[in-house]
Amino acid sequence: MFVQFTTWDIVRNLLEAGRWTLALSLIAFVLGGLVGLAILFARISKNRLLQALTKGYIEVFQGTPLLMQLFIVFFGLSLLGVDVSPWIAAAVGLTLFTSAYLAEIWRGCVESVPRGQWEASASLALSYTQQMRYVVLPQALRIAIAPTVGFSVQVVKGTAVTSIIGFAELTKTGSMLANATFQPFLVFGLVAAGYFILCYPLSLYAKSLERKFHVAR
């Protein structure tokens, strides 16, 4: 039997799928932030080996397509004997992707803290940890907020690629609806609108933060 889809049915289905896009974005952003923080500390540590390893990690994730990263996680995890659903593969893949980008963004922020601040705090006999904790990181954090919010837009958009490994988020649901309703123009227009509604406020917020911190500096 054919099912007739009204426009409201399409919107309702897309809204339901949009929750998965939102959930995946949040998970990837939060976990990616945590992993990214670990990568950041390794990247700016004094250990040469850690520096080189994390530099390579960042370069690989920034130099290869997100789709390939997802495929490798998807098929690689199953080779390790882990039974992966598209949902897990999407979350793991996007987390790694996010962590590499955030670590690199944050490294830039830490390095933009003037050299003199390090020297001054060293001359006050602060240890490396104390320098980080009380002098460098608080200043870096201030600079980091705007680009971090800006990057969250990339994470939301990145979730669209997970549709290709079969995760039923907004884009995947859109494809299925387009096939079922023969109204691709309407459906993909609505899908695009859905992403825009998620991303545009983040973009605006990032821009306003940027302006605020520029004035203050």
Partner: peptide, 13 residues
């Protein structure tokens, strides 16, 4: 519009 929507969706559209 372009910067706030995924490339994949633009392509499908």
């Amino acid at each position: 519009v372009i910067r706030n929507t995924p490339f994949l969706v633009q392509l499908f559209f």
